[in-house]
Design a protein around this nucleic acid. Structure first.
Length: 262
DNA sequence: TTCCATGTTCCGCA
DNA sequence: TTGCGGAACATGGA
């Protein structure tokens, strides 16, 4: 599930549940989602701290520690958060749990274990180390900058949109959505796009991601002329009604409309 | 049972 | 050097 709009939902969820409560302990039954640390190490770094805010960059969520550092979460393909105020049963697929002083718990769930949990001292340094591109909603991302970064790229446009080093936040679903809304095929070479096409793509990308972020990635709430609600439903183009086509581009199954995208 | 999956990374190859 | 396909990761659901 998690692409940028879903991360916005997780961010709001964490902000509305887990802030300003002192962390008593951290447990991770399964070490495989921990990176550069262990359950004990993570516990030492977080114990006694409170989370005071949540920031996002692309598909990473950062929860600020009141004394120092950031709890850093990546959700892979199947991750999510669950907050429990009472001693209910731990949700299935819980991989890591923060327990607060009052007994409430924040669970990090991941069905497949492709996400990661770590603690970083400096957020900006981490983003740099991961070589993440600008966040897709970053107001600093200007069209000219976007075009310049596209121009010296070979290869197809869709993998470029999904490349987190190019721009951070889009995955398979929203890359398809942006290309559909821009009327562009997923397999056109990036270097073939002229200035007018760049501008259309840039504006569409910003608009689609803003709309999706506003709806916090809830597909059912997206406008009905969006592709996303139709790719699992009638599998028809919301613009022309023709059946959507599948095309695998750089290993990911995508969906597009041959009639509306060129 | 087999195939596929909203992510990332690594390898081999062109 | 860049980018692609494929595999791997690990697991569950259709």
């Amino acid at each position: 599930m998690p692409e940028l709009p879903d991360l916005v939902r997780f961010q709001h969820y964490l902000q509305s549940t887990a802030l300003r409560q002192t962390i008593l302990r951290t447990s991770a039954r399964d070490d495989r989602i921990l990176r550069q640390t262990t359950a004990q190490g993570l516990g030492r770094q977080l114990k006694g701290q409170q989370l005071t805010g949540a920031e996002r960059h692309g598909k990473y969520l950062f929860a600020r520690g009141s004394r120092y550092g950031w709890l850093t979460l990546h959700f892979g393909m199947t991750g999510e958060l669950k907050y429990q105020r009472r001693e209910n049963d731990k949700p299935r697929f819980t991989r890591m749990t923060l327990t607060f002083e009052d007994g409430a718990r924040l669970h990090y769930l991941s069905r497949r274990i492709l996400g990661e949990v770590r603690f970083v001292k400096y957020r900006e340094e981490f983003i740099e180390q991961q070589q993440l591109g600008p966040d897709a909603l970053d107001s600093e991302l200007k069209p000219a900058d976007f075009q310049r970064r596209c121009e010296d790229r070979r290869g197809m446009i869709k993998p470029l949109l999904m490349n987190q080093r190019f721009i951070a936040g889009l995955g398979n679903m929203y890359a398809d959505e942006v290309l559909f809304q821009a009327g562009l095929r997923p397999d056109i070479p990036a270097e073939q796009m002229d200035g007018e096409v760049f501008e259309r793509l840039y504006k569409t990308l910003r608009r689609v991601m803003q709309v999706a972020a506003r709806h916090e990635g809830i597909v059912a709430d997206l406008p009905s002329d969006y592709l996303l609600p139709h790719r699992e439903g009638d599998r028809r183009c919301p613009a022309c009604g023709r059946p959507l086509e599948e095309k695998t581009v750089s290993g990911r199954t995508g969906v597009f409309c041959r009639h509306c995208q060129h």
